[in-house]
């Protein structure tokens, strides 16, 4: 469905892991573009009804591209550049903040 139109020639590749599977893209590619290239259509489930969502605007305004990156939830995949070794997971439902995390602070 999605096809890369910019030539890849000469640009070094980086490899990230999406739900454990390696995805290699040219350096400078966003995480969203990398996952789309890998064939992922849905990146997250919505917080309230759990319906699937994927990137819509690709420019940081719709928040439909949220993923978990290296353990941090709710990252906008379209605004994050892919780096070697990144671990990317789908954002499943609302992120959990731990009320106990601030205790004793």
């Amino acid at each position: 469905m999605l096809r890369r139109i910019a030539p890849q020639g000469g640009i070094a590749g980086v490899t990230l892991y999406f739900e454990g599977a390696a995805v290699t893209v040219p350096a400078g590619t966003t995480v969203a573009a990398a996952l789309l290239q890998a064939g992922a259509a849905s990146f997250r489930d919505t917080a309230v009804t759990g319906s699937p969502r994927g990137p819509y605007c690709m420019m940081g305004v719709c928040f439909d591209c949220l993923v978990e990156i290296d353990g941090q939830p709710n990252r906008q995949a379209c605004l994050t550049v892919a780096l070697n070794g990144m671990r990317v997971e789908r954002q499943r439902g609302a992120a959990l903040l731990d009320p106990k995390a601030g205790e004793g602070a």
């Binding site: 917080a47 939830p73 709710n74 439902g93 609302a94 992120a95 959990l96 903040l97 009320p99």
Partner: peptide
């Protein structure tokens, strides 16, 4: 200000 969506607490 509005934060990201997080689980209801």
């Amino acid at each position: 200000m509005v934060t990201e969506r997080v689980r209801p607490f």
